[in-house]
Simulated scan of single mutants.
Amino acid sequence: MATLIRLTSRPPPSSQTLKSLLIPTVRSKTTSTSTPSHRHHTNPHEFSSPSEFLGSWKSPTSPKEAETKLAHLRRDYAKQVKQLRHQYFYEMELHRAEKQRKDEAKREAVRKAKEERKAAKAAAAQTRAAERKVLEDEFRQTLVKERAEKLEYWRATEEMRVQIKSEKNKLLRQQSSMWIDEKDLEKRLVEVILDTTPL
């Protein structure tokens, strides 16, 4: 109970002490939240001019005058709201047209890039087809040349074989003392067998 009595009996802090306690915390909060990016704006917002309705009301002398002034204020306010709406719609239309123009330009750029890629692919395909055709023509010419060389070699070999055979037959004819035709060969063999000469 004694501690409770002491706590409750303590006098409330004065306003000077509260100010001295609150000022450093407020200063620290204001200084900590203000960053350099907030202090230095590269593109500050342009605020519109203050409305002329602010501070324009003066106390009328009679209720009728007050009603008339209020009606004028309402009419002017409605006119200005109408003008602001027209301006807003005009700006939104300009924004929409600008966005549409940018989208069309982007689509056109994408279409041109796609056409350029397609043309580059077609040109590369034509180049590869031309190179492949040149290689095929060279390979075909090589095959034709090899076949011609093989045919020429076969003909030369055949001619050489025929020539060697004819030379061999000619040599046999020269070495034989008497050449017998094939039709008389059997008759001559019989004669040689029967006509034996004694030693």
Score class of each variant (00 low, 15 high):
His41Leu: 14
Lys64Ser: 10
Glu152Pro: 01
Thr17His: 11
Leu151Ser: 05
Gln141Lys: 15
Tyr77Phe: 04
Gln174Cys: 00
Asn43Asp: 11
Lys102Phe: 06
Ser37Lys: 11
Gln175Asp: 09
Thr3Gly: 14
Glu67Lys: 08
Leu143Asp: 04
Glu91Lys: 06
Arg161Asn: 01
Asp76Tyr: 08
Asp195Met: 15
Glu138Met: 11
Gln175Leu: 12
Gln126Phe: 05
Ala105Gln: 05
Pro60Ile: 00
Leu171Ser: 01
Ile23Leu: 15
Leu194Met: 11
Val110Asn: 12
Arg155Gln: 08
Leu135Thr: 12
Pro50Asn: 02
Pro13Met: 09
Glu91Pro: 00
Lys112Ala: 12
Gln175Cys: 02
Glu191Asp: 14
Ala113Asp: 02
Glu52Cys: 14
Ser56Pro: 02
Leu199Met: 15
Arg75Ser: 11
Tyr88Asp: 09
Glu149Cys: 09
Thr35Glu: 09
His86Lys: 15
Glu182His: 11
Lys168Gln: 08
Pro11Asn: 01
Ser32Lys: 10
His95Asn: 08
Val134Ile: 10
Pro198Ile: 01
Trp57Tyr: 14
Thr196Ser: 15
Thr3Lys: 13
Glu136Pro: 00
Ser62Leu: 04
Arg27Asp: 15
Leu21Pro: 00
Ala119Gln: 07
Ala119Tyr: 00
Gln126Asn: 06
Arg39Gly: 09
Val192Leu: 14
Arg39Lys: 07
Ser177Phe: 01
Leu4Ser: 04
Leu21Glu: 06
Thr142Phe: 09
Ile193Asp: 13
Ala120Gln: 12
Ser14Tyr: 00
Leu22Lys: 07
His38Asn: 13
Lys150Ser: 02
Lys58Trp: 02
Thr68Lys: 13
Ala105His: 04
Glu91Tyr: 04
Arg101Pro: 00
Asp103Val: 08
Asp103Trp: 04
Arg128Leu: 12
His41Met: 05
Glu152Val: 07
Pro13His: 07
Ala122Thr: 05
Lys118Glu: 12
Ser34Asn: 11
Thr42Phe: 05
Ser177Ile: 04
Arg111Ala: 13
Thr8Leu: 14
Gln126Thr: 10
Leu189Pro: 02
Arg132Gln: 13
Lys183Ser: 04
Pro60Gly: 05
Arg132Gly: 01
Gln174Ser: 11
Thr127Ser: 06
Phe139Thr: 13
Ser62Lys: 05
Arg85Ile: 13
Pro12Cys: 05
Thr30Pro: 05
Ala124His: 02
Lys165Ser: 05
Lys58Val: 13
Ala109Arg: 12
Lys106Met: 09
Pro60Asn: 07
